[in-house]
């Protein structure tokens, strides 16, 4: 069943001067039709200013389409009456963990969402416990968020969203400010939510390595969806991605370079494991 659907979605930012006169119009999202199924893991790539975040903000009704329609779980996001239901269905996590945490204690922060939804207290605690467990942060439930590492803070932010029992979670560059292990922790948590809890995940990122676990990759450029496919299909198109100011994971690039030098390596290598296997196969057939 389709959970998120958009039809001919366009969005325009209107720039105004000091007197309020229209200076110009930027079409940030241009005629995007999208269909995300319940349980999908979708990654969105695109250079700065390509419209990724603008698109994402439509999914939980922070922005409303200038033209076209967005449905979340069958609800039209432009209908005021659906607003809270839409936001409860699709939760969002942003780049900077420090801007998203408000509680003095981790469990309090995670409980903030369900509390606002009017969930009865015993159930709030139950949800807090489950959510912290889902992101591997249970042992920190009584800690102050200030003392956590970036990756831990970001996992608390994710727990805060899943405590509202959304069907979908949108992660907008959740790892941009994190160190290598923080990045790993957050991506692992996102994958677990998708695999175990069957939550639909939409991941926006500039780190190509984080995309390889997605079921589907969308590449945006100038507000359009320019490419879509599996990570393997997308990352086989090295040169096209470069033109869109993007890249491929280091291992994919290495495989691409080796292939150019004449080694018979298949396209779309995504992991060090795959490249090692491909290289060993060459050794075996030669030996």
């Amino acid at each position: 069943m389709s959970l998120i659907r958009s039809k001919a979605l366009s969005f325009e930012y209107i720039r105004r001067d000091e007197e309020g006169n229209v200076e110009g119009i930027t079409r940030a999202v241009d005629n995007v039709s999208l269909d995300v199924q319940q349980g999908d893991f979708v990654a969105i790539l695109g250079h700065n200013g390509s419209g990724k975040s603008t698109l994402a903000k439509h999914i939980n009704a922070i922005l409303h389409p200038t033209e076209g329609t967005v449905w979340v779980d069958g609800m039209d996001t432009s209908d005021e009456n659906n607003l809270w239901q839409v936001r409860q269905t699709a939760g969002m996590v942003f780049q900077n963990p420090d801007n998203q945490i408000i509680g003095q204690v981790v469990e309090e922060d995670v409980g903030f969402g369900p509390e606002n939804l009017g969930v009865p207290t015993p159930e709030i605690w139950q949800r807090v416990e489950e959510s912290l467990k889902a992101v591997g942060m249970s042992e920190y439930r009584n800690h102050s968020p200030n003392k956590l590492s970036g990756g831990q803070k970001q996992r608390v932010s994710i727990a805060g969203v899943i405590a509202m029992h959304p069907k979908c979670i949108i992660l907008d560059e959740p790892t941009a400010m994190l160190d290598p292990s923080g990045r790993k922790e957050v991506i692992r948590a996102a994958r677990a939510l998708n695999d175990v809890e069957k939550i639909t995940v939409i991941l926006i990122t500039h780190y190509m390595e984080e995309v390889i676990y997605a079921g589907k990759v969308l590449v945006m450029d100038k507000g359009h969806i320019k490419m879509q496919g599996s990570p393997r299909e997308i990352f086989s198109r090295v040169e096209e991605l470069k033109e869109l100011r993007l890249a491929v994971p280091q291992v994919t690039l290495l495989a691409h370079e080796l292939k150019k030098r004449g080694l018979p390596i298949p396209d779309g290598i995504l992991t060090t494991y795959e490249l090692t296997e491909a290289l060993m196969k060459i050794k075996r057939t030669e030996g």
Partner: peptide, 9 residues
């Protein structure tokens, strides 16, 4: 380079 696309980085 935090938050920039690959080309920007």
């Amino acid at each position: 380079t935090a938050g920039l696309d690959p080309k920007g980085r």
